[in-house]
Design a protein around this nucleic acid. Structure first.
Length: 906
DNA sequence: AGGGGGACTTGAAGACAATGAG
DNA sequence: CTCATTGTCTTCAAGTCCCCCT
């Protein structure tokens, strides 16, 4: 129990009282099993990349928000350290608030570098596992404040960011259309760029990396960074003196290490904390820990350190310092509080010694959270629908479902018979057999719809104070659900709200659209929580959870079965900014980077197999080629009760048309029923192979009849450890960004560089076929722009005439109203003409951009496919404030990437 | 080997908030 | 200052892939 600190039943993170509240410290990361696996796999494989360096450092990044402002001002990227991520600390509130629970989140917790292959890194990994120290309760109070504050913290940041806002799409200009782009780019990639790149460039890059990563240099860096990091971290890491560092590293880690290694041997992890064994360890740890804590407390030290820290880059150094200063000052305030709290820490967490470390599965040692929050019960409005023109009484349950339907009056679903049919099936069940309502078509839901519109309007009309009050009220209710404490670190929970009942809105032609998605009750929900943590109180009186688990091999906090498809689950996970998510994100990109080293051979291998005698081999080769070249998804099999969409392995004959001499036209519905249309030139053997796969089949037959995703992935795994189809998407997206940025970035101001970035981002979005629906007002906006341009052109014409006349010494013509215009000199007129021209050009560019991007969504690739380190490193190199590219959420999500070396290449 | 359960990532759309043009 | 536009955040559907069992 010690470990689980929170003793209380329900803990409120924010409460003051909680001295005992759980404390959270920064966490070192534990390696994940995956990582281990990966490492081992990698090892096997001869190739190695070292990059390990990077991440592994134990420090955290960031925190400081304060700096953002400075960063803005200055051009450059302050150092990673300063990047703003959330730092609870800063927030003013924190200081004021009495409460403290202590936790801060450091999104970034140290990650181990998963991928790092070299021994060095490995060791590090092991070490990581072990370390977390925990404290007992109150010690960390200061930190606690942070909790409540976190939110607050965010605010300031956001405010700062606001100024920046993003460049938006405006700047991007592209002449070519998306479609053409796509073709071109693809081909280019395949053909020219890629291959060549792979060879030379790669090796070069690799070398660089490895050197950097490995060892000493790296370490050094880390140190520098650390100070900053510490800010964010607060407690755990202390930044104070270098001593500390050393102590941490050498002292703690080693300790852990020992443990870890032991652990690895053990197979089944017991979870955590076994009291006895642990204790002894704890003691030792504890001592250390305390020291550390103390250090942490002082803020001052931090700031000092920061100052001291050697500037890494000449250019950026000054900036960094500024940023650091900002941060430090803000930190100071916070500190006071935190200091006192420390004293009591009673417990230490043991690193888990357990055996588990080796084992692949463990994701956490301690997990504390408050469960989930349910939507409020239905409030009947009493508005009657009309049946055959007559008002009908409904029970609240019937009315609730009727309202769900009524509210969707002006959506597209109303035009879909399947939707209505499914709705009617479920609703008529609720009405019962003998109900007056026997035909949906005779129902008029308008009164309910209008009531709904009125309610919406009322809400809109509320004064801003009322809205604010309402919001605060909601926040207050939800606050305790928003956070979890994972291995002593306070982390944000992603989706703690249980999904409310509603009508299922499947995408595309989903066979189940319109079905009633029933209300979820506590008895549907399974909670997963630390063994020693208090079980969350069931928020609905008289009911209880379905089950309680203590499974530390998974990351979910709760799940329930999807009411629409009971075979599937809905999970509650931590937010994207959590270190658990961050770590796996990083692993994902490391795997993709590994592919870079294998890609040449893989391409050679599949190229060879295009003409294999073995049909299966040939299909695998062609499928792999398509996945690589076109970034197609794998394409798992789907059930009949799902929308009919396909991916690579499930392509139908009719989806791919052969256009002589060597083009293929793809046309199919992919994920989310988004259409993929693309005509590509392919190598002749591929073209011929597709032709063969077509023969003897009808349009609806599988193109790759000998293939499915498990066979394909099994094959890919033989080529590179851990390789699966989706890695190609990540790889192609990130490598494209990296190459485009490095090729196209030129000197210029920040805005111009941002445009370059967006262009690259757009390229990736097109490759991945990330689409968005055209906004309703798009055409209106376009015509408005056209109008304006026409107007400007009129002005321009007039100016030219005037200029002409002025040159001849004549007075200008009258304007449209017949009034005499001022007599301007030719110079002035020329200037005006130039200005107008510039204006027109800009508008035309904006229009073009808007048109190009009307169906392209840039966000998805940024969130899921582009290695943030590429972006961060590029920003550092080109002195572009990272806030110009990443918004607040992205900064939090990518906290793990912020300390990347400016020379990082994907 | 393949079927299915399970866990986790990816994705577009909608709700909501912030900005900026007029 | 208001309204339209743009940007951000939330929601929840829909993918991928692993792993275990038979």
């Amino acid at each position: 129990m010690v470990v689980e600190a929170p003793a209380k039943h329900v803990f409120d993170f924010d409460d003051d009282d909680d001295d005992d509240g759980p404390v959270v410290f920064k966490r070192n990361n534990t390696l994940s099993s995956k990582q281990n696996q990966l490492n081992s796999e990698i090892k096997k494989a001869s190739s190695q990349r070292s990059d390990g360096h990077s991440g592994s450092r134990a420090f955290y990044v960031q925190a400081s928000n304060g700096q953002s402002s400075s960063s803005l001002k200055n051009k450059a990227f302050p150092s990673s350290k300063s990047l703003p991520v959330r730092s609870p600390i800063l927030s003013p509130k924190a200081s004021t608030s009495s409460a403290r629970t202590s936790l801060v989140k450091s999104p970034v917790a140290n990650f181990k570098t998963p991928a790092s292959l070299n021994d060095h890194s490995k060791q590090a990994l092991k070490q990581n596992k072990c370390n977390v120290v925990s404290e007992g309760k109150s010690p960390i109070k200061g930190a606690t404040e942070a909790n409540s504050d976190d939110d607050d913290d965010l605010q300031p940041l956001s405010d700062r960011l606001k100024g920046i806002s993003n460049p938006g799409t405006k700047g991007v200009s592209t002449s070519s259309t998306a479609q053409s782009h796509r073709l071109v780019s693809k081909t280019e990639i395949k053909g020219s760029t890629k291959d060549p790149d792979d060879e030379a460039p790669l090796s070069v890059r690799v070398n660089m990396k490895s050197s950097a990563g490995t060892s000493s240099s790296k370490l050094y860096d880390s140190d520098e960074k650390k100070p900053l990091a510490s800010n964010s971290e607060q407690k755990c890491s202390t930044v104070k003196g270098k001593l500390e560092k050393s102590s941490m590293l050498s002292g703690k880690r080693p300790l852990d290490k020992g443990n870890c290694s032991d652990q690895s041997s053990a197979k089944k992890p017991k979870i955590s904390d076994t009291p006895t064994a642990m204790k002894s360890k704890q003691l030792t740890v504890k001592a250390e820990k305390e020291k550390a804590d103390e250090d942490d407390d002082d803020d001052i030290p931090i700031s000092q350190r920061i100052k001291k820290s050697p500037p890494s880059n000449s250019k950026t150094s000054s900036m960094k310092q500024k940023a650091a200063k900002v941060v430090s000052s803000s930190l100071k305030k916070l500190n006071k509080k935190s200091k006192k709290e420390f004293k009591n820490s009673k417990y230490i967490k043991s690193t888990k010694v357990s055996p588990s470390s080796g084992d692949g599965q463990k994701k956490w040692s301690t997990l504390v959270h408050n469960g989930v929050i349910f939507p409020p019960p239905y409030k009947p409005h009493g508005i009657k629908l009309l049946y055959d023109g007559r008002p009908i009484d409904l029970t609240p349950e019937q009315e609730e479902v009727a309202t769900m339907f009524a509210v969707m009056k002006d959506t597209d679903y109303m035009n879909k018979p399947q939707f209505k049919k499914n709705f009617w099936e479920d609703w008529s069940k609720l009405l019962g057999k003998n109900h007056t309502i026997k035909d949906l078509d005779k129902c008029d839901f308008t009164p309910i719809y209008e009531w709904h519109l009125q309610e919406k309007e009322k809400k809109k009309q509320m004064s801003s104070e009322e809205k604010k009050a309402l919001k605060e009220e909601k926040l207050k209710q939800e606050e305790k659900y928003m956070w979890a404490i994972v291995d002593r670190v306070k982390e944000k929970v992603g989706n703690f709200r249980v999904e409310p009942p509603g009508l299922f809105r499947g995408r595309g032609e989903h066979p189940k659209m319109g079905k009633l998605k029933r209300r979820i009750r506590p008895s549907d929900i399974t909670i997963n929580i630390g063994k020693n943590a208090p079980i969350p109180e069931c928020p609905i009186p008289g009911e209880s959870w379905k089950d309680i688990k203590h499974d530390n091999t998974v990351t979910w906090l709760a799940f329930w079965n999807d009411p629409i498809n009971p075979k599937e689950f809905k999970y509650v996970f931590l937010a994207a900014s959590s270190s658990l998510k961050g770590q796996s994100d990083k692993e994902k990109y490391e795997k993709a980077r590994m592919l870079k080293e294998y890609i040449k051979n893989i391409r050679a291998a599949y190229t060879k197999d295009f003409t294999s005698k073995d049909v299966t081999k040939r299909q695998i080769a062609v499928a792999t080629y398509l996945i690589d070249k076109l970034a197609l998804r794998a394409g798992n099999e789907k059930d009949d009760d799902e929308a009919d969409t396909v991916g690579c392995c499930t392509l139908k004959v009719g989806n791919v048309e052969c256009i002589p001499p060597n083009k293929l036209k793809f046309d199919f519905l992919g994920k989310d029923s988004i259409q993929y249309v693309n005509t590509v030139e392919v190598e002749l053997p591929v073209y011929n192979a597709i032709g063969q796969f077509h023969t003897g089949k009808s349009k609806s037959d599988d193109l790759f009849d000998k293939l499915d995703t498990s066979k394909l992935n099994a094959h890919l795994k033989e080529l590179m450890p851990g390789l699966t189809a989706k890695v190609f998407r990540t790889y192609n997206a990130s490598i494209t960004l990296d190459e485009m940025l490095n090729k196209e970035t030129k000197d210029g101001d920040v805005a111009e560089k941002v445009v370059i970035y967006q262009r690259a981002n757009k390229e990736v979005a097109i490759i991945c076929n990330h689409q968005r629906s055209i906004s309703k007002s798009h055409s209106a906006q376009m015509s408005r722009l056209t109008e304006k341009i026409t107007e400007l052109k009129g002005v321009l014409k007039e100016l030219k005439i005037d200029l002409d006349r002025a040159n001849k010494g004549k007075p200008p013509l009258k304007d449209a109203d017949g009034k005499q215009k001022r007599n301007l000199t030719p110079e002035v007129l020329e200037k005006k003409i130039a200005q107008t021209n510039a204006k027109i050009e800009k508008m035309e560019r904006d229009m073009q951009t808007k048109e190009d991007l009307k169906t392209v969504a840039l966000g998805t690739s940024k969130i899921n496919y582009l290695d943030p380190r590429i972006t961060v490193a590029w920003c550092k190199r080109h002195e572009v404030p990272i806030e110009k590219i990443f918004n607040k959420s992205l900064l939090a999500k990518f906290a793990w990437a912020m300390d990347v070396d400016p020379d990082f290449r994907f």
